[in-house]
């Protein structure tokens, strides 16, 4: 449980806020948070579909629009967030997360409810919490910023996957650019640990794709498989 942390760490977290770097959050917080949450629900209930997220005018340096919308709608004073080294070194990002979300930033990834990370920084899932058999929901949710996302296998440097499982009628294609090979292998193999596991949210610009732990993935074979054409054409 995360509750036995000291009071002082909450007031003065890892970093402090630089007031000059603060930017506006959602203009209409209630409606826009609900909208973002609805999009997140759609993304998670239909894994592999691309969602265009509700946006703010600007986002702090280091975050893309979709990640910032997720942060504004999901993070609060009761959750813990781990930032990858590159993101943690962005004062505007840290200031705005602390200010708008009152997030508790943690140093150890396995203490985090959420992890925010760039794809090129992550080669393993090992540092994160996979949850326990009693409380699988306590695992870390990973928000991974990637250079490109597509539901067609057209990205040159992307990992082409075929997704199957709950929320997918037959199968669905997903192409995520910029993932390291070792991470990709771990993502595939971590499915064996269900119900424990990491729910992944890939973000790129305004786009969000969810890959919950219940979705099976295999690296695309050249042979055509029956695909769920309808959702593959959604953008």
């Amino acid at each position: 449980m995360t509750s036995l942390q000291t009071l002082s760490s909450q007031a003065s977290s890892l970093k402090t806020v630089d007031a000059s770097l603060l930017i506006a959050g959602f203009e209409n917080p209630v409606a826009q948070c609900q909208q973002a949450f609805r999009q997140l629900l759609s993304a998670t209930s239909e894994p592999g579909t691309l969602q265009t997220m509700v946006a703010t005018d600007a986002q702090p340096a280091g975050l893309n629009t979709a990640s910032w919308s997720l942060a504004l709608s999901l993070f609060d004073a009761d959750c813990t967030v781990w930032l990858s080294p590159v993101l943690a070194a962005q004062p505007a990002l840290v200031s705005n997360l602390l200010f708008h979300c009152q997030t508790r930033l943690v140093e150890h990834a396995d203490e985090a409810d959420f992890a925010l990370c760039n794809a090129d920084e992550l080669d393993t899932l090992q540092p994160f919490s996979f949850g326990s058999a009693e409380y699988p929901a306590t695992s870390t949710s990973l928000i991974l910023q990637v250079p490109a996302l597509s539901d067609e296998c057209s990205l040159s440097a992307g990992s082409g996957w075929t997704l199957t499982g709950p929320g997918i009628k037959f199968s669905r294609h997903l192409c995520v650019a910029g993932l390291q090979d070792s991470l990709q292998q771990e993502l595939i193999h971590s499915r064996n640990r269900f119900p424990c596991g990491i729910d992944c949210f890939f973000t790129c610009d305004h786009t969000l794709v969810a890959l919950p732990r219940s979705t099976q993935l295999s690296i695309d074979q050249p042979i055509d498989q029956p695909t769920d054409q309808h959702s593959a054409q959604e953008s």
């Binding site: 603060l22 930017i23 506006a24 959050g25 203009e27 209409n28 917080p29 200010f99 708008h100």
Partner: peptide, 8 residues
Amino acid sequence: YQFIRQPE
């Protein structure tokens, strides 16, 4: 002025 955080 510009709102950084609307009154909530």
